[in-house]
Design a protein around this nucleic acid. Structure first.
Lengths: 327, 327
DNA sequence: CTGAAAGCGCTTACAG
DNA sequence: CTGAAAGCGCTTACAG
């Protein structure tokens, strides 16, 4: 670990000024003598020079990094989302800084501040709460460009990109009904998030008398496990469990099967997100596919696009239904 | 999104110099008049001041961030590892920057350079290849402090912290034998990584004549699926499949079951990492538990500790066996 | 086409 | 105890 070569070192080695060296190295090649350019390039090579990004960022007032804050990297839906986001960002030569808010508004607030005071030009956040996340996001908005992804918060004037939850629920309910399911149990969670709220509202708009609702604290596999136990305890089994997250569906299916319930014969089980957990289960689980690449692209456009509109866009992208063997 | 207040703004507002304002705000409170300190604090509050971390990093020659580069965030083992690493780093007030090398030495090399030229004080890397990752890691070592986690590369003088693979395999083989399993199929992958190499060598040291080996390109669920197909195609089933990664075990179990094989009656299946996938499967899968927190702690010590020893430490931490229902 | 100079926003010896 | 000044390593008007 030796002393890094600096721009001045390169310039000296090449016998030019820092200005010229900088011009060559940043590719502002117009207006540079090819001879000198060559010398600078060689010197830079010889010294193993790489521009110090901290100094560059300070001067340019921009780091070339974007941040993404998700509730939990343990939830595989967010892993897929981060994956898509990173791929799209890298395509435009942006680095990505990832953080996890532990599904906790308090921790989320600290993370947002860390980003705000930190090294990103813009921030994508999946808020943990439709209400409690408001203040931190508003605070972030004062310092940097922010877009909300997958979930929004109330009363915050900030762009949003996510899946169309209403369409997703409708697709799923129609699919179940058309397969003869008559008593659907809606397995919801995180009613304190916009996703939870929108999905439940959509379900109620399409519910029939025989249907019911089970609402859990968080989207997690253990919540799915608890939902299964509730189903088992509460008398006759419904003929479908519409889970509003893959992790819920996986936990629920796993628990039902351990109790000897046959899926899909006794009950249909559906997920929501399209993660690759679905294919691993036995039987593979019916769910939606979210347009994650498109979501990431639109999010980055909003984050990095030219101006900040007075009324930021809210973008909802339609999911597709992917029928597998549990329905 | 308004103009951020600068240190000069705070100083002016409080009627002091930047030096004093800086002293107060960085908590170098010795040698500051309490009166002035109070005024500075108030001004800072009023202006919503937060130090610009880029400027601070340039001046201090340190960012307060550490990086971690993993082969794939799709592999849930690495999610757990990153999780532990982040928790431990945050405890010491370090930020964490995460990147994914897509299991590809080429991409890995680019990511390492990005880190090297980027905004971290030290880097933890899980190399993709015991050979091909060498040059990039050596290059990183010239610019910043580096520690290898979970896997090492040949001929690179760099600290390492990981699980004791030999002990893990031994534990697992003994467990299977003591449960009466006589024909063990070793399901390996990534023979180009130190983990792959060490695990295979350990297995061979404990193998019996009836045992066999199936080696796959990568640790992934689809590789587990292929392993199951090979097992099914190759004549009489062994009575145990010792998988050297949880994702392998999950993919293999899932495929075997789809083909009507009974686990554990027909065959035992074991994982390796201790991710929470194991509990979701039906039946839950026997595996090891890695001491991830300890691994993260030791890694951070090596990354951030005082001096760089001439012969960097190689730390191997012992796993525990967690018997579940597949063995 | 090229270089001297200013400046991004901080922190920290140094002098007083 | 406090402030003027230097400097971290770049980039970019500006003058020539």
């Amino acid at each position: 670990m030796q002393q890094r070569a600096t721009l001045l070192d390169v310039a000296t080695e090449a016998g030019v000024s820092r200005s010229t060296a900088s011009r060559v190295l940043t590719g502002t090649l117009r207006n540079v003598d090819p001879q000198l350019a060559e010398r600078v390039l060689e010197a830079s090579q010889r010294l193993g020079y790489r521009a110090n990004p901290v100094a560059r960022a300070l001067r340019r007032q921009s780091t070339g990094n974007v941040g993404i804050l998700v509730p939990s990297i343990r939830n595989s839906y967010f892993v897929h989302l981060v994956d898509a986001f990173t791929r799209v960002a890298n395509r435009s030569h942006f680095g990505v800084v990832l953080a996890d808010s532990g599904d906790d508004p308090e921790l989320e607030s600290r993370r947002i501040d860390a980003f705000g005071e930190s090294l990103v030009d813009a921030l994508a956040v999946v808020p943990t709460s439709v209400t409690a996340s408001g203040p931190s996001i508003r605070r972030a908005l004062e310092r940097t460009r922010v877009v909300q992804v997958d979930r929004w918060t109330a009363g915050v004037d900030c762009g949003f990109v996510g899946v169309d939850n209403e369409a997703g629920i409708r697709l799923m309910v129609e699919h179940l009904r058309s397969n003869g399911r008559r008593r659907i149990a809606y397995i919801g969670a995180d009613q304190d998030t916009s996703a939870g709220v929108e999905r439940l509202a959509a379900f109620r708009a399409h519910a029939h008398p025989g249907d019911r609702e089970i609402l859990l604290p968080h989207f997690s596999t253990s919540a799915g496990h608890h939902a299964a136990q509730r189903l088992l305890a509460d008398g006759p089994l419904p003929d479908a469990a519409l889970c509003t997250a893959d992790v819920l569906a996986v936990g629920l299916l796993s628990t039902l099967q351990k109790e000897g319930v046959k899926v899909p014969d006794d009950i249909a089980v559906t997920g929501f997100d399209g993660t690759d957990l679905l294919e691993l289960m036995n039987p593979p689980i019916t769910a939606l596919r979210h347009p994650l690449d498109a979501i990431a692209e639109r999010a980055l456009e909003l984050m990095l696009g030219p101006s900040v509109p007075a009324h930021p866009e809210k973008v909802r992208l339609p999911p597709e239904l992917v029928a597998r063997s549990t329905s």
